[in-house]
Design a binder for these strands. Structure first.
Lengths: 145, 145
DNA sequence: CTTGACCCTATATCTAACTATAGGGTTTAT
DNA sequence: ATAAACCCTATAGTTAGATATAGGGTCAAG
């Protein structure tokens, strides 16, 4: 297998980058289409050619996904990143704080579910008897939440 | 406005039930289509007629949704409920326990996001200075998660 | 007797982040 | 030279739980 180079820089074909960064080829094409990761160049045959810089951007995307950011939010972050001189720390921090609040709200909602579910599970015998008087079903009927 | 009755029992038209239980008419039709809440009868003109029992089932559905159950899971619970003699407490408890584990796993994932996001937010000055050396962007680049 | 409120079905649209498929060109290995 | 492996575009499908829309029937009031 040959390595591809453009203007003296190593370039990756889509399948190569996909393998390196443990992502599907389809997902990479999807990122291109969504504008979060468009390869800097195309070969003459139309193949996408990703640079080392593109690979770093992909790592950024994957890392941001690990923080719970959506692709739309990652798009925003990347827009700031590529022209960071025109943007401020405040903007970035605001985005991150909103995300944090969003996540915390989702945690609270899930914890409400958890609290009630735990209560309800505890009251149930869980035995082989008929569910006719099952305390879980009864609790739900009585609008437990 | 007249109240509708069938075999001596009060029945609700879809819009009436929707108003009483604070749900949209479309959602009720969707529940019917999904088989979680099919009105016991249809009027001669094709109108859905919901009984008091159907209304209780709707309350059950809404309550179960407040515990985080999906419609598919609620379908399962209702299947057990309508023929509770053929089912056991154990079955019901198992469903609830699985749901609890599911919710707890989702909480853990969100908490991982939260922990890292908090760290990252704290390191950022959030000031009006350019984002060129923004510690949040740098942290994401360095695969913070 | 017609207007507005209500009901019906069937189909499309929404969000998010892909995955899959169809149909076709390119490259690499044998 | 040909078959496998790889690339392309464009479009459709997936999940969940609805919401929206088109086109049409029903019903009660004035």
């Amino acid at each position: 297998m040959f390595s591809i180079s453009y203007l003296g820089n190593v370039m990756y074909k889509i399948g190569q980058l996909a393998k390196l960064e443990a992502i599907s080829v389809e997902a990479l094409r999807f990122y291109d289409q969504q504008g979060v990761l468009s390869p800097g160049h195309r070969a003459e045959n139309g193949y996408r050619l990703y640079s080392e810089e593109d690979r770093k951007t992909l790592k950024f995307i994957q890392s941001a996904k690990n923080l719970g950011f959506t692709l739309a939010e990652i798009h925003e972050l990347l827009d700031i990143k590529v022209d960071s001189r025109s943007h401020t720390c405040e903007e970035v921090k605001t985005i991150a704080e909103h995300k944090l609040q969003d996540i915390q709200e989702r945690i609270r909602q899930l914890q409400r579910f958890e609290t009630t579910l735990k209560k309800v599970v505890k009251t149930c015998c869980g035995g082989p008897e008929s569910a006719e008087h099952c305390s879980i079903l009864e609790a739900i009927e009585e609008r437990v939440a």
